[in-house]
Design a protein around this nucleic acid. Structure first.
Length: 432
RNA sequence: GGAGGAAUGGCCGAGUGGUUUAAGGCGGCGGUCUUGAAAACCGCAGUGCUCGAAAGGGUACCGGGGGUUCGAAUCCCUCUUCCUCCGCCA
């Protein structure tokens, strides 16, 4: 949510920056918010004048009654204002709600350094790490996984429908190993505090991080209890500090959280992609930071670096791009994507997205800090990034480490987590 | 799931319709005193909105929302959370 004061004072520059996101721009929406704001303030000012009046007269009534005198004239005077006060009170409540709704619907301002562009093709390449592995043969992860009996889509569909997977045997072990590797790396070497949050949350939490109201149809909802399954750990972890004023000395807060993520992927036409790339349920290790505004862009760089360390540690070839204005999510001020090389697709695919939301989420969720004793509270900056999407990491390992004999080499960094196993080979007996 | 009880400021805690401008205590900050510190004493301290160039006003907020009343921390309804007990349960 943008600061209404910024809109009042710099409407033109806000409009110009929002317009870089593409489409027809949001000039009309900005004007509507401002019109609402003007009307709301007029109503509130008038209401508050009447309230001051009433408070004064009510005290006078108390005084008169205490002295045994007649107060009916003043009571009549106050009653005469009641209708107008009621009316103004309702009007200002409605205007306040309308203003908030309109403000919630406006996207964040892209940061100045974010390149203008229309879509994916305009995302500038920042750097590339490693090289394409030289492979004797190139299978995609679905073929590899089926031969090695690492996961089972058919049986998962029997349980839950399409878009779900069941990891089996060494596949399940590899997945668990990856999760532990990721959590250990970020807690031990990068200073993040591990969080294992609830996986169902109230609607307010989703509004705070701005999945609601816009992406309702992407969420699994438990209607009976008005709760939602988390689409990412970002939601519970960012909302840990909702409606709090944090001590400045506590910043930056850095959290790492492993959770399953649940997404309906409505409108994605049968998920579009084969295998583990896009599922209704997947595992992800997420990094979340709460920082002082002055430091948030430096923190974004280290966030990306922390995510990259994972890929480097696993020896996976990848590249980093900056999302241009047209490709960036509405919530973000600046986003870097990490794209890992997938030989099976002959393409780089997103495996991590690292964003600085500046104060956009913090204002929605009322997450503030006090810069110094006696200062007014100020919105923190929030950041988050995947480090990493576990399923896609497994895909990258299977495809980049596949060997000529049909086996897959386990990256050395991961071996301590699989009992020292160096290679996954096809099993001796058929599965089931 | 059932039956009770509770929620007041950073913390503890008083307050059951009207000078309450939420008592008092603890903790915090500033000052006086002191070579310094402690103690003592004095003072300052919440959040949002709004008016104002500013100084400074106004208004709302006693878990959330709604209601009764000229006037609500206080009375009524409702929701949430916590506690105690019962039932069920990994």
């Amino acid at each position: 949510m943008l600061d209404i004061r910024l809109l009042r004072e710099n409407a033109d520059s806000v409009k110009a920056r929002l317009a870089t996101r593409g489409g027809s721009g949001l000039d009309a929406e900005v004007d509507a918010v401002l019109a609402c704001d003007t009307e709301r303030r007029a109503a509130e000012t008038r209401l508050q004048t009447l309230q001051a009046d009433r408070n004064r007269l009510s005290k006078e009534i108390g005084r008169l009654r205490a002295q045994g005198q007649d107060s009916s004239a003043i009571e009549a005077q106050v009653k005469a204002q009641a209708a107008e006060m009621q009316e103004l009170s309702q009007a200002s409540a409605i205007l306040e709600e309308t203003q908030r709704e309109r403000l919630l619907a406006l996207p964040n301002l892209p940061q100045q350094s974010v390149p203008a562009g229309r879509g994916e093709e305009d995302n500038p390449l920042i750097r590339t790490w490693g090289e394409k592995p030289v492979l004797a043969k190139t299978e995609d992860h679905v073929a590899i996984g089926q031969r090695l009996q690492l996961f089972d889509f058919e049986r998962a569909a029997k349980l839950s429908g399409s878009g779900f997977v069941c990891y089996t045997g060494k596949g399940a072990r590899l997945e668990r190993a990856l999760i532990n590797f990721l959590l250990d790396l970020h807690t031990r070497e990068h200073g993040y505090t591990e969080i294992s949050p609830p996986l169902v949350v109230r609607p307010e939490a989703l509004t705070g991080t701005s999945q609601l109201p816009k992406f309702e149809e992407q969420l699994y909802r438990i209607e009976r209890d008005d709760l939602y399954l988390v689409p990412t750990a970002e939601v519970p972890v960012t909302n840990l500090h909702r409606e709090e004023i944090l001590p400045a000395a506590s910043l930056p807060l850095r959290y790492v959280s492993y959770t399953p993520c649940f997404r309906r992927e409505a409108g994605s036409a049968g998920l579009g992609t084969r295998g583990l790339i896009r599922l209704h349920q997947f595992d992800k290790v997420e990094l979340v930071k709460f920082v002082a505004p002055e430091t948030s862009y430096a923190e974004l760089e280290t966030l990306v670096a922390d995510a990259e360390k994972v890929l480097q540690g696993l020896g996976l070839h990848y590249r980093v791009v900056t999302l241009c204005t047209g490709d960036m999510s509405a919530t973000s001020a600046k986003t870097y994507d990490l794209e890992v090389w997938l030989p099976g697709q002959n393409a780089f695919r997103e495996i991590s997205s690292c964003s600085n939301f500046e104060d956009y989420q913090a204002r929605r969720a009322k997450i503030r800090y006090r810069p110094a004793a006696g200062d007014k509270p100020r919105a923190v900056h929030t950041l988050n990034g995947s480090a990493l999407a576990v399923g896609r990491t497994l895909v990258a390992i299977l495809e980049q480490y596949q060997d000529a004999d049909g086996s897959v080499v386990i990256p050395p960094a991961l071996r301590p987590y699989v009992g020292g196993t160096e290679r996954v080979s096809p099993p001796q007996k058929p599965n089931g």
